[in-house]
Write a protein that binds this DNA or RNA. Structure first.
Lengths: 210, 210
DNA sequence: ATCATATTGTTCTCCTTGTCACAATATAAA
DNA sequence: TTTATATTGTGACAAGGAGAACAATATGAT
C-alpha cells in the first residue's frame, strides 16, 4: 500500500510536467512511460484511489492532479524538522524537491554551535529548542541525519516530543518507539545495489532495476 | 536477488560494529535484530550465499565478514563518478558512508565553472573531462545529481562513455540505454511515504515500515 | 445511426519473497 | 557416554504485488 502512495508522488510529478507542456489528457500507458512503471499498475493505482478516467480518451490531467492532492491532503500538511545539519543534513535542508507541495522542512537542529543559524531559511537551531519548535509548529515528521551512534538517542527524543514519522539517513537499524514509524534511506546500500547490477554480465536479463 | 545483495551491505555494517565491540560469534536472531530484519531472512540469505554457521553457536563474525567481502569483491572494486555538484551532489561527494569498503567516488563533474575545484578530495572537474577521467580510472558507476531536465541527457552521455550502473537522484524516470542499469533514489517519495505512515491512525497495525 | 476502435476497470494468474516449521546437528552438561 | 538443548539449514506455505487478459464503454468515423 505504501508503494501505491509513493507512486502517487511520482505520478504527480510527471503529470505536472505534462500539464506544463500543455497536455490535457493522458492514457495509462503514457503516464506509465513517463513515471517509470507499467500501464496496469497505473490503472490499478488509480482504481484503488478512485481516480476515474474515460473508457476512451484516458485521464484528465487536472482532475487527476486534484484527486491526488485530495488524497495526500492530510499527508502533506504535516510539519517536518531535520536533526543533524552536517554534510548531508544541510543539503537536505536546502533540497528544493521537498518544497514541492507541502512537506517543507520548517527547522533544522544541530549540537555544533558553529552550525547554528537563526536567520537561515530554514533556520538551524540548538537541540534545546526542539521541544519548543515542535510543539509550536505542530511538526509530526522528522528527518534524522546525525552520525550513526547518535541516531537511536535522537529518535527516542523525537518520539517523546510527539514526532510520529521518521526518515532515517543514518546507516543503522533503529528500534522504533511505540506509535512511531521509521523508514530508512541507506545510500551505501543503494550504491552497492547499483554496483552489483553493473557487475552482472552484459547480456543478463534485467528484471531487477527499479 | 538485489535485495539480498543490499542486505549483505547492512549485515556487514552490523557485523563490523559487533566485531568492534569484541563479539566473536552471532546467531541469526541477534544479527537480525541488529540489522533490522528477521532471523529467517538472515539464515536464508546466508544459505543462498554459502555462508555457513555452526548448528549450535551461530556464525563466526570474522568468517562471515570475509565471506561477504569475497562475494562483493567484483562489486566493490568499481570506480564511481558523480555528475552534478550542487546542493545534494556536494554532500554526496563528501559523504563518508561511501568510502567504507571500496566504492569511493573518484571525481565530481559540474557545468558551473564556479564549482570547479581540481584540488578537492575528490576533485570537481568540468564535464569536458568526463571522457578522459572515466577511461583513465576505469569507472563503471555514476551518480546523477543534476537538475531533472538535464538528467536524461547526462545519462545518455555516461552510457556512451562506458558507465554501466547509475544511481539517479533526479526525480524523473530515466530511460536506460541498452546495457546500463539505472536505480532511482527519490527523496520526495520517501518523505511522502513516511508522512503517510505518520498520518495513519495511532493503533494501526504497521506491517509496512522498512 | 451504426460500427469500429481505443482505452479503462477489473479479474485471474503467476511470481517473488518472507514466514513458519521442523529435521539435522553440534555443543555442553550430567 | 549419554542426554538435553540451542541453533542452523531447508522445504513447504502464504501473502502481496505485478503483469496479462478481457469485458465494458465512450468516442470518432462513415
Amino acid at each position: 500500500m505504501i508503494d501505491r502512495i509513493q507512486r502517487l508522488t511520482a505520478y504527480r510529478r510527471s503529470l505536472e510536467r505534462l500539464k506544463a507542456a500543455g497536455i490535457l489528457r493522458v492514457t495509462s500507458g503514457l503516464l506509465a512511460e513517463a513515471s517509470g512503471t507499467s500501464a496496469s499498475v497505473v490503472r490499478k493505482d488509480f482504481s484503488v484511489f478512485g481516480l476515474q478516467g474515460k473508457r476512451r480518451g484516458g485521464y484528465g490531467i487536472s482532475e487527476v492532479l486534484e484527486g491526488i492532492s485530495t488524497i495526500l491532503e492530510g499527508v502533506s500538511r504535516q510539519g517536518v524538522v531535520l536533526v543533524g545539519c552536517g554534510n548531508l543534513g544541510q543539503a537536505l535542508l536546502r533540497y528544493a524537491g521537498f518544497s514541492g507541495d507541502g512537506l517543507a522542512i520548517t527547522a533544522g537542529f544541530d549540537t555544533d554551535p558553529a552550525r547554528i543559524n537563526r536567520r537561515g531559511k530554514p533556520p538551524i537551531l540548538p537541540p534545546g529548542e526542539m521541544s519548543r519548535v515542535i510543539s509550536e509548529t505542530g511538526a509530526t515528521i522528522a528527518i534524522i541525519a546525525v552520525p550513526d551512534f547518535a541516531a537511536q538517542e535522537t529518535l527516542n527524543r523525537l518520539a517523546e516530543l510527539g514526532i510520529r514519522g521518521i526518515l532515517n539517513f543514518a546507516p543503522v537499524h533503529l528500534h522504533a518507539p511505540a506509535g512511531t514509524h521509521v523508514r530508512n534511506v541507506n545510500l551505501e546500500m543503494e550504491l552497492e545495489g547499483v554496483a552489483w547490477l553493473a557487475s552482472l554480465p552484459a547480456g543478463a536479463p534485467d528484471k531487477e532495476d527499479a
